[in-house]
Each structure stands twice: as structure tokens, then as C-alpha cells.
Amino acid sequence: MGAEFVALSLPPILIGICVAVACALPGNFLLLRRQALIGDAISHVVLPGIVVAFLVTGLVATGPMLLGAAAAAVIAVIAIEAIRRLGRIEAGAAMGVVFTAMFAGGVLLLEQSDTSSVHLDVEHALFGNLESLIWLDATGWASLMDPVALATIPVELPRMALALVVICAFLFLFWRPLSLSTFDEGYAQGLGIAPGPLGLGLVIMSAIAAVAAFDAVGSIIVIAMFICPPAAARMMTNRLGHQVAWSAGFAALAAVLGYVLAGYGPLWIGAGGSVSAAGMIATVSGLILGVAAMAGPHRTRNS
């Protein structure tokens, strides 16, 4: 088990956990601020950002793509806000207009341009390919201590871990203003907390999580992790700190369980092959939410 597990399963599982937790943490605040669908919008507009970055630079490199995706996310947020104000249109509808148009543009650009030589297509953008992130040079648990082998660990893992650290740092530093302005915007303003920059900071953190996760796991898991673990955690407790902790736990559980079920589930029921890990992780997070919604101690509005 050891060597094969470390090489084939450990990196995807760790990446999955990092993605899940990195998305779930800001997701708590988005959920409470009734901005849950921002995550949905961001993960759709990441595609045109990456495609444009590829067309401009001509190469599939991480740096330009992350920049392009982040730029697209910021443009989308600005466009949503502009349309909402200029047209006096409800936020949900403005969001629907912007992200569908940007996604459509991204798809057309992608299909029009010659990307056949590179690993870039719509399906990859949607479901990613968690299973392919293997660590070929690992020979066993000892490889984790071996700098030579560590150098070839899938680059997504350190990148995702870094994103997770950044997000944790943001939440730690701004915990008080964030929680205050989430629950009582007026009071927070009275204390001198500017809601605009803080809200934008939260959106940027979400964008970092979405963009970093996108390449590894695709956008669908990102949306699921933004919403399902925090929503399930919301059913478990009334305290914000506990909710965030629960959501991180649920996210990690979904990642591990989903990966294992996707890889070994078909074997257990006697079928061959494996199924999409990203899809399975999203499914498991939905099951967790379902259980919490039916049995969580604080599932109703007045409990």
C-alpha cells in the first residue's frame, strides 16, 4: 500500500483537502452575507481569464494564467456592480448576465483559437483532473523527507497550500471586522470599519481560492466547496467560530471521502475503472449537507 499510496493517492487527497478548506473558509462569510453565488460567478469567469492569458502570452504557464483569471474575477465583480447600479437591476440578475456572457466568450475564444496542442479545454475547466496529479518520484513515505523527490511533487500542492495559508491569514487578521460587518453592518460602520474594502477583500480571497483551485480540480468542485460545507456547518451551530471550524472539517471530510469513493467505489460494487473525483467530492459534500439539513441541531430559522 505505502509506496503506491504516496505516489498516486496522497498528492490528490492533500490537494483536494487544501482546495476544499480554502474555498469553505471564505464561503462561510459569503453564505452569511447572502453572497453565496459570488463563488459561482467567479468560478465561471475564471475560464475566459485563463483563455485570454493563454492567447496573449501563447503559453500554458501558471503565472500569466493566475493573473488572467484573477483579472477576470475582478472585472466580473466590477461589471456586476456597475450593471446593478446603472440599470438599477437586482444583484442576482446582474450576476447572471455577466458570468454567462463572460463564460460564453471564453468558450468561443477557446474553440476559435488553436489550443489543440495544449491541455486546455472546456471540460477540463469544468471538472479538472484531480486524479492525474500524481507524484511519480515518490517511492514511499520516506520520500516526504527526501528533498530530491519532494522537488517533483505536483506543483498544484504547494500552490494550493500557499493559497490556503493566505486565506487563513486574511481571516485571522480581519476576523473581528469581518464578523462584525457580516452580522451588523451598521454597527461595524459606526466603529469605523469600511464595508466596501472589506467586502472587496473577501471577494478577492474567494477569487484566490477559486483561481488556485481551478487548475487542479475544475470549477464545479469550487462552487460546491464555497457553499455546501459552510451551509452544513450553519445547521450545526449558532457560533461563527464553531461554524468555520465545522465547515473546514466537513470540507476535508468531503475531499477525502469523495476521492476514496471515486477511486475505489466502482471496484467495491464490482465495476471497473473509476469515476470523476471532482464530481464525487461535490456529491459527497451535498450528502453531508443533506444529512445536516435533516438532522442538524440548528437547522431551522429559530433554533
Binding site: 459561482d40 464545479i220 460546491a224 451551509a231 459534500s285 451535498g286
Partner: peptide, 18 residues
């Protein structure tokens, strides 16, 4: 449940799609 409609929409769309 105590979830708002936006969260319910996001949860359903991502889980069903997944």
C-alpha cells in the same frame, strides 16, 4: 432550513452537476 435561497441554489446546482 435556515439557508437563504441563494445558498440553496448554489448547493443544488453544484451538487447535482457534480
Amino acid at each position: 432550513t435556515r439557508l437563504g435561497e441563494d445558498a440553496a441554489i448554489g448547493a443544488v446546482l453544484s451538487v447535482f452537476f457534480g
